[in-house]
Write a protein that binds this DNA or RNA. Structure first.
Lengths: 141, 141
DNA sequence: CTACATCCTCTAGCGACTAGAGGAGCAAGA
DNA sequence: TCTTGCTCCTCTAGTCGCTAGAGGATGTAG
């Protein structure tokens, strides 16, 4: 386990692109790492873990501001985890709502595509349904 | 059915905000409407229908560039509707993929939230799972 | 020694809006 | 008529989370 990692190394290992890592540093999500004589950033395992944490949280759709809070909580493990729990629950609700809304869209798109008679646009259901919301089978939106 | 609608009227009737309507005009999605003596935009039913079309398409998650194509198709109904069909199908696939990925996230978030013992952060599952992707129950991402 | 990869900083762009400044027009009540 | 207050106008800049590119320095392999 080597401990002097270039930005390219941590990029490869974490799956976060190099410019994105520099961006995270810029917005204060990652601390400024030390530099070599040649002015290049170098990281240790701790830096890599922090980046992996961020990446995973982003994959789960947490916003940067939420991640900022979660990182602060992680840095102080003596605190009660109610805040972390609340953030995760809020995200869960968001995801559930998004799924429900996408299911409605899916149903509507399926009707559009199925009913399209592959003829002229004049009688195309796709265009027709878009033009007249009242023709939707669903009123979810 | 009155035929001289202010931008505020069409905003109310279509559900699209006033600045957004001006933005759509700016990017060429809506044609420049005529103006009153006092330099105010006024719209007719045709303009309102076009805006409703755009709104519905946006609600279905179509990108502006796709809507541009759909509007062009709508303006020329003699064309075959294969293009419109292809756009809708592509969107359907996107939606299906997005749902699948969100379901995976939902499952992972549920595990995190359920397993949180509401104790100290030191043993909080939320933080722990975020810190170590290997602890995920799912490998969808 | 020469390629070539990787790194650096900096600025600008993406999509689809949204917010705000600073001002003009218009309708209704006193 | 005046005034209040709402709507409208244009313009610029900001949002989020990156991503792309310019222009240059540094490091590494053959």
């Amino acid at each position: 386990m080597k401990s002097d990692l270039t930005i390219g190394d941590v990029a490869r290992e974490s799956g976060v692109k190099v410019p994105t890592i520099r961006y995270y540093e810029q917005i204060g999500l990652l601390p400024e790492p030390p530099r070599t004589d040649g002015n290049r950033r170098f990281y240790d395992q701790k830096g890599l873990r922090r980046l992996a944490f961020i990446r995973h949280a982003r994959e789960l759709g947490f916003e940067v501001s939420a991640i900022r809070t979660l990182l602060a909580l992680q840095d102080d493990p003596a605190q009660p985890c109610a805040t972390a729990d609340a953030i995760a629950k809020a995200r869960l609700i968001e995801v559930e709502q998004r799924i429900a809304s996408l299911m409605a869209l899916k149903a509507e798109l399926e009707v559009m595509v199925e009913e399209c008679r592959h003829g002229r646009l004049a009688e195309c259901r796709v265009i027709e349904v878009l033009a007249d919301h009242g023709k939707c089978m669903h009123d979810h939106h």
